[in-house]
Design a protein around this nucleic acid. Sequence first.
DNA 1: TTCTTAATTCAGTACATTCTAAATGTATCA
DNA 2: TGATACATTTAGAATGTACTGAATTAAGAA
Lengths: 172, 172
Amino acid sequence: MDEKTVSKFIESWGTMGSVWGINASMARIHALLIVSERPLSLDHIAKTLRISRGNASMCLKELRNWGVVRLVKEPGDRQDYYVTEPDVWKMFFAIARERKRREFDPVLTVVRETLSPLHKGASDIVRLRLKQMEDLLTTLNFIAERSLTNDKRARSVLSFLSRFVRKKNLKE
Amino acid sequence: MDEKTVSKFIESWGTMGSVWGINASMARIHALLIVSERPLSLDHIAKTLRISRGNASMCLKELRNWGVVRLVKEPGDRQDYYVTEPDVWKMFFAIARERKRREFDPVLTVVRETLSPLHKGASDIVRLRLKQMEDLLTTLNFIAERSLTNDKRARSVLSFLSRFVRKKNLKE
DNA sequence: TTCTTAATTCAGTACATTCTAAATGTATCA
DNA sequence: TGATACATTTAGAATGTACTGAATTAAGAA
């Protein structure tokens, strides 16, 4: 594999990371592990990506929390080695699930708490908007909730959806 | 409508904004317009939310770009007044569409460009991962692309999806 | 136990984003 | 035309986020 292409890949995956809300260092580490056949040590990762060992350590901890990388030990070696979770899709769902839980759910609760009392004393127009917001949030939450319960289901939802939009397209 | 509840709603919608990638001021302005029956002037908005007129101006410009608010003129009045797009769902799709176009699409192009040359000289294991990444990105892009072409379709995809996951849940 | 090597934590720094307020631009009115 | 009333732009301040590197902790080896 060409050195230069590998690094271009790593950088672009870093940018993609920030698109869906994980920071660039995390995504770059992840990309590096994806193109590496063998487990890599923290030291190796930090050196290759020119980031501090401290930062690498924190990112890897976080990536383990997301369920995206795994730590492997080699007998007779004190260093920790890291490998990527082999299934990329599974990984994607893990991230989606985590982000929903950490960011969406808590805010959803608060928004909902305020939405219902607002209905009182609101004009019809405003009430309609609030109702729509409530429905939108409920639908999104419902879909995410049910889709992400497990990876198998998530996958089947995605593939189904993919077929559905293709069919839709032919019709119109 | 209770003053206090309104402001709690505005703040929590602000937080929700940052979850899906629009900044807090923008989301707060948006929330304020949602609970307001009548169009509001820039000055009124800035005063109510305790933000500078400059900031309000920039946020409103951006919200107009997203297709989320609209400017209305009142005859015999020099001020600009703003109203929210009445259909909350439509608005949500507009945001999704814009974010995809601005952020996801450009990165997707770059990642794809690097993915294919990487295949050469990669081990089977790595090649499998790269293939999976490609498939995942393609599927996501495909779904988003097709779903978001127009609001009517987007809505039907969502409602269909919602029914699908409900059925799935009963079965298992 | 102490020595050694590696991982982790964290205070401070660098960088990025968001916001303010003053300056500038624009349209309407007298 | 100049004066007025508003909107917009922008330089720099404030705030927030990510990162570094030194200090600390942990754990295997002697």
